[in-house]
């Protein structure tokens, strides 16, 4: 169980799980795994099944759209402390864009299938996750709106 204990500590220290009870930390840790991607590697690809979400421990990942015959458009970069991947919660449960490692990246993945089973028998656990996810989604939406304002352009 050394692996799980290590993950428990990492989850406990990650801001996303701040304030979570020890029992629930154990439960999440049971669905968690360490993952590592070399620079350039894809964590997820647009249209592929999305069955995990991720906490960034180290490195930079880019959320990007592939554009034919052009370099991909980078929508956002995420790094240590960030969380990404909510496609597993929303049908059709496929990645809405590519996720690519820009540097060597270390992530904690949380397995959606594993979590779903636990949420069915413990709704409070589901609540704990969703109440952490909603502010992340709200922040991302606020940032997207801010960028829609195109604030650096001339007011012409």
């Amino acid at each position: 169980m050394v692996r799980i204990e290590g993950l428990e500590r990492i989850l406990r220290e990650h801001p996303f799980f701040e304030g979570l009870s020890a029992d629930y930390q154990d439960l999440f840790a049971g669905c968690a795994a360490n993952e590592r991607f070399e620079a350039g590697g894809f964590v997820g690809r647009e249209g592929e099944p999305a069955n995990k979400f991720y906490l960034v421990r180290h490195g930079i990942v880019a959320l990007e759209y592939a554009v034919p015959a052009r370099p991909p458009l980078v929508l956002e970069t995420l790094e240590e402390g960030d969380v990404f991947g909510w496609s597993w919660m929303v049908p059709p449960h496929t990645w809405a864009f590519d996720v690519r490692a820009m540097t060597l990246v270390r992530l904690i993945s949380l397995d959606a299938e594993c979590l779903r089973g636990k949420f069915e028998s413990d709704h409070r656990l589901g609540y704990e996750l969703f109440r952490r996810f909603v502010p992340v989604v709200a922040k991302r939406l606020a940032a997207a709106r801010m960028r829609l304002l195109d604030m650096y352009d001339s007011p012409k």
Binding site: A62, E64, P71, L73, V74, L75, T77, R147, D150
Partner: peptide
């Protein structure tokens, strides 16, 4: 605010 994959910095 936006970039293509050539940019190595933050977006």
């Amino acid at each position: 605010d936006r970039a293509t994959g050539k940019w190595r910095g933050r977006v």
